[in-house]
């Protein structure tokens, strides 16, 4: 792959961010992006725009049974045990789906002829070879993982492992007898703490603390409530592994607003 200069790559950044640059341009750009922090930052910024644009697609109610089929696929993938290597495309290993016609939609889907054998280990739509190629390109540029992941280059190599099952702690946030929301603590590499709180009027900012078995509290972060409600998440680091209880504390007064006893979900 030949390295390109900033000028050439900068012309391609919008297409890269949109995920529509051709393979050749992408390969050259990746080589340059690996060594150019300026272009990486530019790409990240275009990627945010491109992602917001993708999100404008109208929501469409999926066909009947969709949710069950997705859950079956996920269940099968989880039971598969060993996760795919980072960047490997997900396969569609669910139960057989009823075939549906495209109806009035504008494109016909060039599916593999029903008589021909499926290539081993590939998704039914035949896209995984391309995706794998893309992932290989991506792995050559691991240094730009953060920027490019959002740019749609099928990376996320750093996060290529599922968390062990049942590594999640949950607890209902209560104040007296009032149920105010929920706390979820991930005991995995993300150590993510998520808090959803509703109906705590009169408090503008709350501090989230995790308390260990010995009563020692660690502040994880602070977030704002809007009309008494908020939805927040942050990494808790090692504290996630020791947490027995989560507290929400009024940042202004230090009063404990709500607490949640954590237990394996």
């Amino acid at each position: 792959m030949t390295d390109q200069g900033c000028g050439e790559v900068s012309d391609l950044l919008a297409e890269l961010a949109l995920g529509v640059a051709d393979a050749e341009g992408r390969a050259g750009a990746l080589a340059h992006l690996e060594i150019c922090a300026g272009c990486q930052a530019e790409l990240r910024s275009f990627a945010d725009t491109a992602d917001a644009l993708a999100s404008l697609a109208p929501e469409v109610e999926p066909p009947a049974g969709f949710e069950q089929r997705v859950l079956s696929t996920l269940g099968a993938a989880r039971r598969g045990g060993v996760p795919a290597p980072a960047g490997t495309p997900a396969t569609c290993a669910g139960p057989p789906r009823p075939s549906r016609s495209g109806g009035s939609l504008r494109r016909t889907h060039a599916r593999r002829p029903s008589g021909s054998p499926a290539p081993p280990g590939r998704g039914p739509a035949g896209w995984s070879r391309r995706a794998r190629h893309r992932a290989l390109l991506a792995s050559a540029a691991a240094v730009v993982v953060v920027g490019l992941a959002a740019a749609g280059l099928a990376l996320s190599g750093a996060g290529g492992k599922p968390a062990p099952a049942k590594a999640v702690l949950t607890g209902a946030l209560v104040s007296g007898h009032r149920h105010l929301g929920q706390v979820v603590v991930m005991r995995d590499r993300s150590a993510l703490v998520s808090v959803a709180v509703h109906g705590e009027a009169g408090v503008a900012w709350v501090r989230c603390e995790l308390v260990d078995a010995g009563g020692k509290a660690v502040t994880i972060g602070k977030f704002a409530l809007s009309d008494g409600s908020g939805d927040w998440a942050a990494g808790a680091g090692a504290a996630a592994w020791e947490a027995h209880e989560a507290l929400l504390v009024d940042a202004a007064t230090g009063r404990v607003v709500a607490r949640a006893e954590l237990a394996a979900s």
């Binding site: 569609c92 495209g102 939609l105 504008r106 889907h109």
Partner: peptide, 9 residues
């Protein structure tokens, strides 16, 4: 994709 089956995959 413009195709229901492909979109579900």
């Amino acid at each position: 994709l413009g195709d229901q089956a492909a979109a579900e995959d």
